[in-house]
Amino acid sequence: MTNIVSIQGLQKRFGKFQALNDVNFTVNAGEVVGFIGPNGAGKSTTIRILLGIIKRDAGNAEIFGKDVWKDSLEIHKRISYVPGDVTLWGNLTGGEMIDLFLKLHGGGDKQKRDELIKRFELDPKKKAKGYSKGNRQKVGLIAALAADSDLYIFDEPTSGLDPLMEAIFQEEVEKIKKSGKSILLSSHILSEVERLADKVVIIRQGEVVETGTLDELRHLTRSTVTLATKGDVAEMAGLKGVFDFNQKDDEATFSVDNQHLDDILVKASKLGVKKFESVPPTLEDLFMRHYEG
């Protein structure tokens, strides 16, 4: 697989504040990468460096094999970007802004534009100063989605959108994904990332602390198991790999290290299983584990 985006050892400091310490990750062709982390972790800084808007202090950052600072114009021909807070010139209409952005991008699909305006229920004749936050966001999204790019960079793109519009955005992203384009999606809406992303990059205090597919990440952590047995379920508590054991009557809930799952199932079947439910960790669980622990 070819790397669309590749970042190694990226560093950036603002005055005394070390915003990025050591950021490494790649986005491969046709891949949707979820980029998550709390506020101030360095997500937007990384994205701005990728866009050539700010200059890195150290490390390497390439898109399409080109340097993001030196060859930014070449790169920008083939990317689309939506910031988390789209600002517009107040005296232009939404329709005008979209056309302008498509022009600046270097050509987009007029038909796609009209279709998206309809789907997102945007009134393109209204001046931008009359738009709400969500409507400004739609302008940015439509302009980005109607452009034909190889890499889409979204920085919390759905902030301010209602759930219906969020769903439409997700559908559109899936379409792009199917056509083999790459997407870097930074978002706080973890269910969105979970649904769309092939790979997740978790950043914390300017460092990437976890990278991998959702499955890989899940494997490293614990599932939540609810078990009811004919025998005494309390016997499960002493097993290796069982944590947070909670018992209520003959039913117990606990977390399980996935590598010990086999032993646990063997033991449970000896006790006689009445009920067994296993819930894989959600992205939210993964996320919380990284930040609370």
């Binding site: 866009l51 050539g52 990317i79 970007y81 010139w89 600046l104 270097g106």
Partner: peptide, 15 residues
């Protein structure tokens, strides 16, 4: 300051 230039600069616009 308003963040407009950030969006503009993501296109094929010189610095």
């Amino acid at each position: 300051d308003h963040g407009l230039l950030e969006l503009v600069r993501s296109f094929q616009i010189g610095r």
